[in-house]
């Protein structure tokens, strides 16, 4: 089992290769980067996101640290994607460099360890999911649903993923559904708005999502639509699990919610919608009270 989304950004000598996620699944193409400006453009154009932006940040630090400090790079990243905690990523990398002074080795070592932790996190979640899991999910967690399925299978548990399409960028259908089906993992696709009916019909017995940010209290910030699922899941008594990393002791309401250009609300639709007003907040907040368990990166529940 494999997915290019497990490591969507790679270091290739003195350039960075970024999987263009906006073209998937119809085209699997990489963008080659040799400057920080181009990396920032890739970031702002949503060519990569989630784990991809973490890898992109680390590799930009590796290649461009001679001209820009790690803190400077993190600030530039944060200007493009304000919700994600790039400043904390900078602290992580600097901490890693205290143990391994060579920045390339430090970054690679962290990324390698991170992947092992993701597998452990999936295993920890697999332990608590039902024996016949019908898992509602949204957006994409960079191959971790594949790890989860493997872990469930190892425990002789069965699973079907019900994937919300995740408008407007359609990461659910184009990334999650695609990578699951590519690995012959049972998956069904739905429109975002079908979730409530399927919950009422008892077609779903758990919800699993990623998290772009998490607080020590248990609040989660993730792709917009996550809160709706959590809210409905609570109403229908369906457990909601969030895959989190590095929860911070901060007030969730102080984290800026990125609002993307309004025309992105019409992404992937043909035609001209410039005459319509729209808005597209990229994330929403799910308060701790709606989260049954945050499954942390260290594998602790």
């Amino acid at each position: 089992m494999n997915s290019p989304l497990l490591f969507p950004v790679k270091l290739d000598g003195n350039r960075i290769l970024v999987l263009d996620e906006t073209l998937l699944p119809l085209k699997e193409e990489y963008i080659a980067l040799d400057s920080l400006d181009k990396a920032l453009w890739v970031l702002s154009q949503m060519k990569t996101r989630s784990l991809g932006q973490v890898l992109l940040f680390f590799y930009c630090c590796v290649l461009f640290e001679r001209n820009f400090s790690i803190d400077e790079i993190s600030r530039k990243f944060k200007q493009r994607r304000p919700t994600f905690d790039f400043l904390f990523l900078a602290q992580i990398l600097k901490g890693q460099m205290r143990k391994i002074p060579d920045i390339r080795e430090a970054a690679n070592s962290f990324i390698c360890a991170f992947d092992k932790l993701r597998r452990k996190r999936s295993a920890a979640l697999a332990d608590i999911l039902p024996a016949d899991a019908s898992i509602l999910t949204i957006c994409n967690v960079n191959g971790e649903l594949i790890y989860l399925y493997q872990a469930l299978t190892e425990r002789s548990k069965r699973a079907t993923f019900i994937v919300c399409e995740t408008r407007p960028y359609l990461q659910g259908v184009r990334l999650s559904f695609w990578e699951l089906r590519k690995n012959n993992i049972p998956a069904l696709l739905i429109c975002d708005n079908q979730a409530a009916l399927l919950m009422r019909r008892q077609r779903i017995n758990c919800v699993v999502t990623g998290a772009d940010r998490a607080t020590a209290k248990g609040d989660v910030i993730n792709k917009v639509g996550t809160y709706s699922l959590a809210c409905l899941a609570k109403y229908f008594n369906i457990p909601f699990y969030s895959l989190t990393q590095y929860p911070r002791d901060i007030d969730v309401e102080t984290i800026p919610i990125e609002e993307r250009p309004q025309q992105e609300a019409f992404m992937f639709l043909e035609g001209d919608y410039s005459h319509l007003d729209a808005f597209y907040p990229a994330f929403d907040i799910t308060p701790a009270g709606f989260v049954t368990k945050s499954v942390e990166l260290a594998g602790r529940n």
Binding site: R167, C191, Y227, D284
Partner: peptide, 9 residues
């Protein structure tokens, strides 16, 4: 206008 999944927010 907005996408359906923004309703909860």
């Amino acid at each position: 206008c907005c996408c359906d999944n923004v309703v909860g927010l």
